[in-house]
Design a binder for these strands. Structure first.
Length: 194
DNA sequence: CTCTCGATGCGCT
DNA sequence: GCGCATCGAGAGA
């Protein structure tokens, strides 16, 4: 978790489909008052800036992209967090991709915990280790990610950031449809379970 | 294991 | 007022 390995802004200044795959195998790090936790990102989804009605930046009413207070971070520069509240209960975290003005992002859906399992377990209040940081809502709870981190610059190497993998082993990546999205695009990427 | 359903807040129009 | 980029409990197989 050396801060030297913090992924730079250029990493995110690419197509979200590319970034979603490149993020697999990298290390998510969260420093918070009650402890540091880290884990390997194992599942992501891309949300596109070009005709993606599932994107929060896309207005289904007007059939066009539109900046609103909620999705504003998506229109900002790459490498910032976009955190939103889902179903009134859970937080979900994205990392913004591509240039300012191009509203795309990658949703973090699952992390394989590495450091701070006990901290995560306390935050999650669950005994089930397998589900500690699986699912976007669970991930945010385990990593203490809430709306106060909305817009946070994850290239700063403080509070919340992403570090390059120690050794870039080639991963088997599974591509499939996004969860809870009613279209046929295969924009979900996951590390093959084995 | 699979499926169903309720909780719950707010963004958007 | 409607509809979620969700989760977990509970029922049934």
């Amino acid at each position: 978790m050396a801060r030297l390995d913090v992924l730079p802004r250029a990493f995110y200044d690419r197509n979200p489909v590319t970034v979603a795959q490149a993020l697999l195998g990298t290390q998510l790090v969260r420093e918070h008052d009650d402890g540091i936790v880290t884990g390997i990102i194992v599942e992501t989804e891309a949300y596109l800036a070009a005709h993606d009605p599932a994107s929060h930046a896309y207005s289904k009413r007007r059939h066009c992209y539109r900046q609103t207070p909620r999705c504003a971070p998506m229109f900002g520069p790459p490498g910032h967090a976009y955190v939103y509240r889902s179903y009134g209960l859970h937080s979900c975290v994205n990392i913004v991709t591509e240039a300012e003005g191009t509203p795309s992002a990658v949703l973090l859906r699952a992390v394989r915990p590495e450091v701070g399992l006990d901290v995560m377990q306390r935050r999650r209040g669950t005994g089930r280790r397998a589900a500690l940081a699986t699912g976007p809502g669970n991930l945010c709870q385990a990593f203490a990610i809430d709306l106060t981190l909305n817009g946070w610059d994850v290239t700063r190497g403080q509070h919340l950031w992403v570090a390059a993998p120690a050794a870039s082993a080639s991963l088997q990546i599974v591509r499939s449809r996004r969860i809870g999205v009613a279209d046929d695009l295969e924009l979900r990427f996951a590390v093959a379970s084995r």
